[in-house]
Design a protein around this nucleic acid. Sequence first.
DNA 1: ATGGTCGGATTGTCCGACAATATAAGACAG
DNA 2: CTGTCTTATATTGTCGGACAATCCGACCAT
Lengths: 249, 249
Amino acid sequence: MGTLFAPLRTETAYQQVCLAIEDKILARALHPGDPLPTETELARQFAVNRSTVREALRALESRGLVMRAPGSKRLRVARPEAAAVADGVSHALVLHQITFLQVWEAMMLLEPELAALAACRRNAAQLSALEAAARPLADNPTLPADQAVDHTVRFFSLLAEACGNHALEIAAEPLTRLLRPTLSRMIDQVPQARQRIAGAQRRLLQALARGDADEAREWMGKHVRDFRRGYELAGIALNARVETTATQR
Amino acid sequence: MGTLFAPLRTETAYQQVCLAIEDKILARALHPGDPLPTETELARQFAVNRSTVREALRALESRGLVMRAPGSKRLRVARPEAAAVADGVSHALVLHQITFLQVWEAMMLLEPELAALAACRRNAAQLSALEAAARPLADNPTLPADQAVDHTVRFFSLLAEACGNHALEIAAEPLTRLLRPTLSRMIDQVPQARQRIAGAQRRLLQALARGDADEAREWMGKHVRDFRRGYELAGIALNARVETTATQR
DNA sequence: ATGGTCGGATTGTCCGACAATATAAGACAG
DNA sequence: CTGTCTTATATTGTCGGACAATCCGACCAT
């Protein structure tokens, strides 16, 4: 077993540049919001060609470690937002051929506790944002499926945000995202789906407003369980691989 | 509130190329393992310069959607491995200034259930891999802290792998990774830490071997709770921001 | 302060080049 | 025919330079 030599890694120039900048960001030598030096300046400092720097920057950019403010040219140090991270994770899950059942199992585990935490920690703004997200579906029982899905998914995201734990928020976000593609089919084919969702959201909101963690957990459990039943009713195989819609960003 | 216009997005060429390839991969038009066309060929097809293609490829590469086999020139379609995804997530969490307490809270939620699932679903190979990971620490109560950390973390990873749910595995991996940097400090300063860890792992293994989900959940709960106590004993502030070690890849 | 003009700086994209080396093709011995 | 060696070709990594578009800052006039 004791291998004497490890396969030696010769890192290309753009990888080294990428790692160097990444390390500086993670070590907080560069703070989110700070403008990055210009490409020519970086090329000068690393003593490489501008093209090489650019390749490194594209790698950092795609991971959300650097971003540019909308309508701006300059790259700035950033921290990857939940949405960006979730994107990467959900892509990985799709390619790993995750089944709906696995996604559901993970949601069953996370979401109720997440709701319980949110009941204790949500602030007023988050609560009203959640109420706003629930309203369209509650007011209009014949909302087009697309919009119903949007609001359902958004409700989950807002709730995760309200739970006061970024780690859990980021863990949960990809799951709801994977729900989306099949959800509209389900909502279309199961007549009572909209009403069940609206009902669960209403009870959840009441629990959140009261700060009743147990009640919130309870209803989120019912809510997530409903999805599974809905899929069964809609005839969607539970062991079908989850798909993905076109990249949302 | 009602903004009339949305900020219009003009996507640059390399972004379009990147998205085009990404879509093809996610839609399974390109399968993992398939070799990608050469850069010149891609440049021809997209009718852009090779430099532009390269920038797109670097973005895909950094997200693990394409990789090159070691010692190979050609890029191949790949699926992001758990390790790669966890890397991105943990970086995000670090930059979001997650506290140890939040990481611990998330682990408290995930790990016991994950252990329970693993008890039901682990196969023989996974079990023996777990045993092998636990052995060094069990045999040698004075193992250097670094190695003790390695094996502790590895045990978590293997357990996640054995739970039979990729979604949960990928959700849990970043958490244990965030544990690592501070863990060696804790193990060094708390004399009984090694023994507690080894004991918990032993009981967990027994439960896993028997397929006893409840027992596994129970002991994983104790195990994770121990970390918190260990941190308190070591005088590590629970609301300290988690850090990151140099990139591991 | 607001709005308009202008020049320099910066990025996005292109072109062409070359060394290093992986890959494929061919030659050759067993 | 199979396996190994040699050679030629293709491909990538990196470089240098170029140019249009456009963002930024300064300067100016109201």
